[in-house]
């Protein structure tokens, strides 16, 4: 059973990475170049973004060098991801429920990343009993406690809202409750593992042992049932997230940077100029309405240069 537990752990990690890559690959392959569909404000417009302005406010902008403020884009996405800024501005009631939930997740994800780095550093010679690792131990124990509480509290608040808000009832399906319920269960089990563990180092000890065993392929039992159960729920969530609307964790970057803020004019991009020619010169529409004349033999270029009027 212990070996199976670890195998499920590997499966979850590999599965998450594979599914995330599949999503990203699918997105990139859906179209070599979609039409520009930007929405203002676009942060990389820099100072203009304060009121939603763009390079198209300039006379003969195509003759001027564009100043793209990547830093503003980075700050924009960081504010959105870390603070859930759009929800705060436009759905404040929801923010007070969803922010603790998301922040709890970030705390646990951050804790996991710290743990992985520390274990790797140990392999490089870092003293596990040294002062730095003692500090990390305390940080992890606090972060896990806070994060798990936040997930449970936020998750329950979100379930309550989905159950009782008449605005959401028609849009709520059993899957919403499964998703939120799984996170709440994960948080509760994590809290139990934190509270009832036989290890002297607190939750840190359990997590450290598990991650180290994963890296070294040491399939030794973890002496905390709650920890094992919380990990099993976690494994399930890692596979489940990319298969649900929670995949926005993976695709949000593209939905912001490539679509909402994707304003690159073709005049400045030779690669895009070629892509347009390739697409309209080779793609053959099969739309059935008469005016399209999409019989599968004509390309989009043929369609666009015809008048679509039956002679």
């Amino acid at each position: 059973m212990t070996t199976l537990f670890y195998l499920l752990g590997y499966l979850a990690v590999v599965g998450f990475i594979a599914l995330a890559c599949k999503k990203l690959k699918g997105y990139l392959e859906d179209s070599p170049l979609h039409v520009r569909w930007e929405l203002y404000p676009v942060p990389h417009e820099g100072k203009k973004s304060s009121y939603g302005g763009s390079f198209m406010e300039e006379t003969e902008w195509w003759n001027k060098k564009r100043h793209i403020e990547h830093w503003y884009d980075i700050m924009g996405i960081i504010r959105e991801v870390l603070l859930l800024e759009a929800t705060f501005k436009h759905n404040n009631k929801l923010w007070f429920r969803t922010y603790p939930f998301h922040f709890g997740l970030y705390m646990l994800m951050g804790g996991t990343i710290i743990m992985v780095i520390c274990v790797l550093l140990e392999f490089c010679g870092l003293n596990p009993q040294g002062g730095f690792m003692m500090f990390v131990r305390n940080v992890i124990n606090v972060v896990v406690l806070g994060g798990a509480f936040a997930i449970v509290g936020g998750g329950i608040a979100l379930i309550e809202r989905r159950k009782n808000d008449p605005n959401l009832k028609a849009y709520t399906t059993p899957e919403h409750f499964l998703n939120l319920g799984a996170f709440v269960l994960f948080g509760l089990l994590t809290l139990c593992a934190w509270a009832f563990n036989p290890c002297g180092d607190g939750y840190y000890g359990l997590a450290h042992e598990f991650i180290r065993n994963m890296f070294t392929f040491t399939f030794a039992p973890i002496h905390s049932t709650f920890f094992v159960l919380s990990m099993l729920v976690g494994f399930f969530l890692m596979i489940w997230i990319p298969l649900t609307n929670m995949q926005h964790l993976i695709l949000k970057y593209f939905m912001y940077h490539d679509i909402r803020w994707g304003d690159a004019p073709t005049s400045e991009n030779e690669a895009n100029q070629k892509k347009i020619n390739d697409m309209i010169g080779s793609y053959r529409p099969t739309w059935a309405a008469d005016h399209i004349e999409g019989d599968g033999t004509k390309t989009w270029a043929d369609v666009a240069t015809s008048d679509g009027i039956k002679k």
Binding site: Y27, E29, W37, T98, N245, Q247, L251, K252, T286
Partner: peptide, 30 residues
């Protein structure tokens, strides 16, 4: 055809992401 690249290269990435990522928060209503 809307979900086919040859027929809808113009908008497919936007359409697919809007189909698959909505969390049904209805922030859009207001």
């Amino acid at each position: 055809k809307l979900f086919d690249k040859e027929n809808n290269f113009t908008c497919l990435p936007m359409l697919k992401t809007s189909m698959e990522n909505c969390v049904q928060c209805n922030s859009c209503s207001e």
